[in-house]
């Protein structure tokens, strides 16, 4: 079970992590993009952090939707509508819930990923955040299906996301700004996949503490 307090704590942890890794994410985006991924997300999550107190007493669906809407209006780059849609879709499938079963937690992540695919018209293997998110979801789902605890299954998910980030170094970008670079995008890890990994790591850390 995951309750709304833990969801808030995860969002809070993500905001702090993004702020701490802002320069690193921006550096990655400098190599194969326009050098603003860290700046974009830090601006967005700072606004989210300011809004969190007004969401604290809401249900999980409303919290996630509120986070998504804030990201859409404040991030400014592609990651705004992408993560914004992701959180809003996760909010849709958790509407009215004060607690999530482990299966519901996984479904929320699945809905978020489908939101990114829909918004970005992208699939796995295009050197985007999906290359961290899709393998992570698969590992999480497999873990839960095999009877693991949420924490253990999510730990598998984080490992899969780490491998996914490594994998983005070996492929050419076909979506997003990096796609303009063609072969020159090889050898560089995708900034969005990296920020997705950070978000999953934060979720794991918070749930581990519980």
């Amino acid at each position: 079970m995951t309750d709304s307090k833990q969801i808030i704590a995860i969002v809070e942890a993500v905001a702090n992590k993004i702020e701490a890794e802002k320069d690193f994410l921006t550096q990655l985006d400098n190599e194969i993009g326009d050098g603003d991924h860290g700046i974009n997300l830090a601006r967005g999550f700072k606004a989210v952090q300011a809004k969190l107190p007004t969401l604290a007493d809401k249900d999980i669906g409303a919290i996630l939707k509120g986070v998504g809407m804030e990201l859409v209006s404040t991030v400014g780059g592609a990651s705004g509508p992408l993560y914004g849609t992701a959180f809003m879709k996760a909010g849709n499938v958790t509407k009215g819930k004060l607690e999530l079963t482990d299966a519901e937690f996984a479904s929320a992540i699945d809905a978020a990923i489908n939101g990114v695919k829909m918004r970005g018209k992208a699939v796995e293997g295009e050197k985007t955040m999906l290359d961290a998110l899709c393998p992570a979801y698969k590992a999480l789902k497999d873990g839960l299906d095999a009877g693991k605890t949420l924490v253990d299954a999510l730990a598998d998910g984080v490992t899969a996301a780490q491998n996914g980030v490594e994998f983005t170094k070996t492929i050419i970008a076909t979506k997003g700004r990096a796609s303009y670079l063609k072969e020159r995008s090889l050898g560089h890890q995708d900034p969005g996949a990296t920020s997705s990994l950070f978000m999953l790591q934060c979720a794991l850390e918070v749930l581990r503490e519980a």
């Binding site: 859409v72 780059g77 592609a78 705004g80 914004g84 700004r177």
Partner: peptide, 10 residues
């Protein structure tokens, strides 16, 4: 391009 399209879509 990019986010201009996605944000307008939203």
């Amino acid at each position: 391009m990019g986010s201009a399209v996605m944000t307008t879509e939203m």
